[in-house]
Computed example of a mutant assay.
Amino acid sequence: MNAFEYARAADIAEAVRLKAADPAAKFIAGGTNLIDLMKYHVEHPARLIDITRLPLRSVEPSHSGGVMIGALVPNSDLAYHPLIESRYPLLSSAILAG
Rank of each mutant, 00 (worst) to 15 (best):
A25I: 04
A21K: 02
L18V: 03
N33H: 13
S86F: 11
R57I: 05
M1V: 15
A94M: 13
P23N: 05
I49K: 01
S58A: 15
I49M: 04
G98Q: 11
P45I: 09
K39H: 13
P55G: 01
A25H: 08
V67Q: 01
A46V: 10
V16P: 01
L72K: 00
T32A: 10
P74R: 08
A3L: 15
S62L: 13
I49T: 07
L18P: 00
G66H: 07
K19Q: 10
E5M: 05
S76R: 11
D77N: 07
G65W: 00
Y80F: 13
N33A: 11
A3H: 12
M38T: 11
G31S: 10
L56H: 04
P61N: 09
M68V: 14
F27C: 08
A71G: 10
L56I: 02
G66Q: 04
E85F: 06
A10F: 11
G70H: 00
L56D: 06
D50Y: 04
A97K: 09
G65Q: 00
G98C: 14
I51H: 03
V59C: 03
E14M: 13
L72N: 00
R8G: 04
A13I: 03
Y40F: 15
K39D: 09
S62W: 03
Y6D: 08
R47C: 11
N75Q: 13
E43L: 12
E14F: 05
E14L: 11
V73R: 03
P74I: 00
E14R: 08
H63W: 11
K39Y: 11
R53K: 11
R57D: 15
S76F: 12
N2I: 14
G70Q: 00
P74C: 01
L90G: 04
A97F: 08
A94G: 05
Y80E: 15
A20P: 08
R57W: 13
R57A: 13
R87I: 05
S64H: 09
T32C: 08
Y6M: 12
R17G: 03
K39F: 07
D11W: 00
L83Q: 02
F4G: 02
S76N: 10
P82D: 06
G65V: 08
H44Y: 12
D50W: 02
Y6E: 05
R47W: 07
V59L: 06
F4K: 02
R53A: 14
S76L: 14
A46T: 15
A79L: 02
R87M: 12
H44A: 15
A25L: 09
L56V: 02
D50M: 03
G98S: 14
R87G: 09
S93Y: 10
R87F: 07
R57G: 14
A15S: 06
E14P: 05
I84Q: 04
I28K: 03
L54S: 03
D22I: 04
E14C: 05
A10C: 13
P89S: 03
G70D: 00
R53G: 13
R47G: 09
L91H: 02
K19C: 08
A24P: 08
G31I: 06
D36H: 10
R57V: 12
A71Y: 10
I51E: 05
L56A: 04
P82W: 00
Y80G: 14
V59W: 00
A21S: 03
A7P: 05
L54N: 01
I69T: 07
P89M: 06
T32K: 07
K19E: 05
L54A: 08
V16I: 15
A15Y: 00
L96C: 10
A21M: 06
P89A: 03
P89L: 03
